[in-house]
């Protein structure tokens, strides 16, 4: 339904297929500004996890994934990404818009009535780049597995990526999916866990300790690698490249990625307080001053 709009904006995408690290860093910084301004404007949304996963998602879309021009739901002949922890939608929307999936100005409509940028990602309004609704937690890995199985049936060698919150792994459906993917050798799937140790009610270790997540994935039969500095762009890129090299070897691949919720804004870091809270005017000014404009605000 939105192909015309995409066609006009996708011209910019080819230029940035091989950006240098500094160019990616500029996107990261601008994306952080987008996230902060989006949630501030509507006084709602989830800045903490969005800021924590910014390096990951910027790297994924701008350096790692093989993407076609334009958007079609089936995504045959390109890599796919599924965001399971849908509440970090501000990050997802900013990355998609700046990649050219829809006009950057549309970030102005986040969470407003009649917008395609719903509080949590949805396909219902036809926003290009989104392939399934998420927000009710724990469902994304199953969907990613299904898409990966479809790729195998279609003899499409491209990969499927997914992102999950660590708190989200408290949902039982994940473990059904984790068991299934290993047992059925879904080795064209790379699932990343945003290991920030925080959830709405507090640190995951207080709310419901989950033990050694890497080991849990391992004993379920996954190939696991750990990225210890999930807010360092180079570490994230190296980790994703390493994960990519481990696909096609009979095991699904998991990245346990340590991040800091609220990264890039000093007063939002090391706490769960900003999981689902927007900054006020003064806080926004402070936060933006820590992340100067790089590519131009929307």
């Amino acid at each position: 339904m939105c192909t015309q709009k995409i066609a006009t904006t996708f011209g910019n995408r080819k230029k940035s297929t091989m950006p240098k690290l500094q160019e990616l860093q500029d996107i990261v910084q601008q994306t952080r500004r987008d996230i902060l301004r989006m949630v501030h404007k509507v006084n709602s949304g989830h800045p903490g996890g969005s800021l924590g996963c910014t390096e990951f998602m910027v790297a994924l879309y701008n350096e790692i994934m093989e993407l076609k021009d334009g958007f079609d739901m089936n995504g045959i002949g390109e890599d796919l990404f599924f965001l399971s922890n849908g509440h970090i939608s501000p990050l997802f929307y900013s990355v998609l818009a700046r990649k050219g999936y829809f006009p950057i100005s549309e970030l102005n409509t986040f969470r407003l009535i009649n917008s395609r940028l719903q509080g949590h990602p949805a396909t219902h309004e036809g926003l290009p780049g989104i392939r399934v609704a998420s927000g009710s937690l724990g469902q994304g890995m199953s969907v990613a597995i299904g898409a990966a199985l479809a790729k195998k049936l279609n003899q499409d060698k491209h990969l499927v990526y997914s992102l999950h919150g660590d708190g989200e792994l408290q949902e039982g459906q994940n473990w059904e999916a984790i068991m299934y993917a290993a047992a059925n050798k879904v080795d064209n799937l790379i699932s990343t866990v945003d290991h920030n140790g925080q959830q709405i009610d507090g640190p995951t270790n207080k709310v419901l300790p989950m033990g050694d997540l890497a080991e849990k994935f391992r004993v379920f039969g996954w190939d696991v690698l750990e990225v210890k500095q999930g807010n360092d762009l180079k570490s994230v890129i190296d980790g994703l490249k390493e994960a990519k090299s481990r696909t096609g070897k009979g095991k699904p691949v998991c990245i346990i990625m340590d991040t800091i919720m609220g990264h890039g804004v000093d007063f939002m870091m090391y706490t769960h307080a900003w999981h689902g809270k927007a900054p006020n005017d003064d806080q926004l000014e402070n936060a933006l001053s820590q992340n100067p404009e790089t590519l131009g605000d929307y």
Partner: peptide
């Protein structure tokens, strides 16, 4: 073209949703 999911209906519904992405 058959997927035995095991006793895991929630996973089955999600996998089914994912399989449609790719035209199944």
């Amino acid at each position: 073209r058959f997927f035995q999911i095991g006793i895991a209906e929630a996973n089955m519904m999600g996998i089914a949703a994912g399989l449609t992405i790719g035209g199944k």
